[in-house]
Nucleic acid binder design. Structure first.
Lengths: 235, 235
DNA sequence: CGATGAGTTGACGTTTGTCAAGGCCGGTGG
DNA sequence: CCACCGGCCTTGACAAACGTCAACTCATCG
């Protein structure tokens, strides 16, 4: 799987399973597997997907965000109420597949499996970092951490220009990610803008102006965070 | 690996690696691997271990709690500042080992690997449930959830009598787990006790009196939670 | 019997959520 | 082209939840 770009992963996957088709989803769509399985894997080819978990009363937490090339394991559990669900945040191209489809003895299948395992380990690190901010951690820390995580991950897939990038999430969704209300997300972002830490343009465009300050507030060593939450594709 | 009791796992592991020794830790000890590795696995034979993650300012979050038979992957990352660490909560017997030690082609090694993978998936579910409560979620929800998770897991290893069990954690540590201050943990528990939901005896003993109410507050369907966060050892 | 560490309770301040109103922007239909 | 509408962002006012500080109690251990 040379280079391990998104395209490589997708190609290997589809060569192993000729019937597999790339699918699409629009913002707000819930991504499901068409078929009766207890769990399935998701490969995001392009776009943003939120992994969410809900309480009965409707409170929803975004547990992780998936971007180009990311895998996730969605456990459907057979129950009516899913423990997880995956929701498209913008226009998404993806491939949904099952465990069996990559269980073969081919070296490509084995490489894919180990790549997938590494990806899941990194997901776990991200979740733990997020958990740390949600437990103790002020609104400022949470928002700065979210900005940094999304920045690093967009950078890893080449979707940043300097410190400029685009986050296709409403403030309500950012709140679902950071455990804050949409109103407080707004306040916090505006305060950062007033203090010259970030600049926002339009609905989704963000520029980090004072990266060092953001890192300090988030309690993050940028290089360390990168090595922890970004999968090293050259490995 | 018949039955897959703690003892079975430990036996398989030690037969594969005759040099491996069971180790011990006292409350407050940090569990490390003696040797220079980037990451290592932990099998808890008996006792409680907290997986923690810290911010520079000392704020510490307990990301997960391990009990008899649980595995964890500890990534040491080579840096001076560890992303994770494992701390004994009471008297602990454990085995620390590396990836290589279970990489062999023996069927026992393969069974151990797949068991370990399943264990890690369950850990991920637990972390996500916790994340959901820490994001949105009042102190009451968080405490009820923590009680239920610990109850279910103790029950799974046969360390409950009816709804009586023992939690070897201080209120401060419960706060590190739920993202609350020790004072607020205390207040919340006392309020539950006044309202006849739980009864506490001594430092560590807890009895859940009104299980249904606790579940309702936590937003938990007990059977569903069990299937999600407890590894089915018979599988 | 003192010392230490943990649990308990009250008072108080801060952070954050909620409610509500207004502004901005993109889309849609006349 | 314009009017309207709906969704999202923004800001203020207020209330509730929670953290912090501090004092006191209780249990355990020497």
């Amino acid at each position: 799987m040379p280079g391990k770009t998104v395209h490589d992963k997708q190609r290997v996957l589809m060569e192993l399973n000729p019937d597999l088709r790339e699918q699409r989803a629009k913002p707000g769509d819930t991504i499901v597997y068409e078929g009766d399985v207890a769990s399935f894997f998701l490969l995001v080819v392009e776009g943003w997907v939120a992994l969410t978990k809900s309480l009965e009363d409707g409170e929803t937490q975004i547990v992780d965000v998936l971007m180009d090339g990311d895998f996730a394991l969605i456990t459907a559990n057979g129950a009516t109420l899913l423990p997880y669900s995956a929701e498209a945040l913008d226009e998404v191209r993806y491939v949904a597949f099952t465990q069996e489809m990559i269980n073969g003895p081919q070296p490509e299948a084995a490489a894919l499996r180990s790549h997938l395992a590494a990806n899941i380990a990194v997901t776990q690190s991200r979740t733990a970092e997020l958990l740390l901010r949600l437990g103790h951690g002020t609104a400022e820390q949470r928002v700065c951490y979210a900005l940094l995580e999304l920045f690093l991950r967009l950078e890893a897939v080449g979707k940043t220009q300097e410190a400029n990038f685009s986050i296709p999430m409403t403030q309500k969704q950012l709140g679902m990610f950071t455990g804050l209300s949409n109103v407080h997300i707004c306040r916090t972002l505006r305060r950062f803008a007033r203090n010259g830490l970030v600049r926002t343009r339009g609905r989704t465009k963000v520029e980090i102006i004072d990266l060092e300050a953001i890192c300090r507030i988030a309690g993050v060593d940028l290089e360390m965070l990168r090595s922890e939450i970004i999968l090293d594709e050259s490995a």
